[in-house]
Computed example of a mutant assay.
Amino acid sequence: MPFENPSRDEIKTLLASAGPIAVVGLSDNPERVSHMVSAAMKSRGYEIIPVNPNADVILGGKSYASLSDIPGNVDIVNVFRRSDQVVPIAEEAVRKGAKVLWLQQGVYNEEAAEIAQRGGLKVVMDRCIKVEDAILNPRGN
């Protein structure tokens, strides 16, 4: 059965109930899309946890080398990596106990989705979290 993203109502619920969002591939370069999207989400009140082994601090938060290095829980794992690199991230998201694996616009991997779903995670692929939040929660409420 081919993959289908959750309905817009389900996505709205996932975002409304989201605690910490770990952003894998978050760049410390303000000109990169991952940085712009994460900055916008942070400005809308979301807790952003950077995951980038090559940076110490991004958007004012400590950057971690991997999901496993993050102390405490993570609700959403938001991925800015190439489609062929996300299977290990899906496996790590399951081990971390995340609730959602979110692959950003342009990122699609059915194997990663199956791994995450088997591990109990909801999966969103090939959608921008910032765009979805702006559509489903236009005033940031």
Rank of each mutant, 00 (worst) to 15 (best):
N5G: 09
P6S: 13
P6A: 08
I11D: 03
L14H: 05
A16Y: 05
S17M: 10
A18L: 08
P20W: 00
I21T: 07
V23K: 02
V23G: 02
V24N: 01
D28M: 03
N29G: 02
V33L: 08
H35E: 01
H35K: 02
V37P: 06
A39M: 10
A40T: 07
A40R: 14
M41I: 11
K42Q: 15
S43V: 01
S43H: 12
I48T: 00
I49T: 06
D56R: 12
D56T: 03
V57L: 01
I58C: 04
S66Q: 10
S68P: 07
D69H: 08
P71N: 11
G72Q: 10
N73S: 15
N73G: 13
V74I: 14
V74T: 14
D75C: 11
I76A: 04
V77P: 07
V77M: 07
V79A: 00
R81C: 04
R82G: 06
D84N: 14
P88V: 11
A90R: 08
E91H: 11
V94F: 12
R95C: 02
K96D: 11
K96C: 12
G97T: 13
G97E: 13
V100E: 08
V100M: 08
V100G: 08
L101Q: 08
L101W: 10
W102A: 06
Q104C: 00
V107F: 04
E110P: 01
E114A: 13
E114K: 15
E114P: 01
A116W: 05
G119P: 11
G120K: 09
G120E: 07
K122Y: 13
K122S: 14
K122T: 12
V123S: 04
V124I: 15
V124D: 13
M125Q: 13
D126S: 13
K130T: 03
K130F: 14
V131M: 10
A134E: 14
I135V: 14
L136F: 07
R139L: 11
G140Y: 04
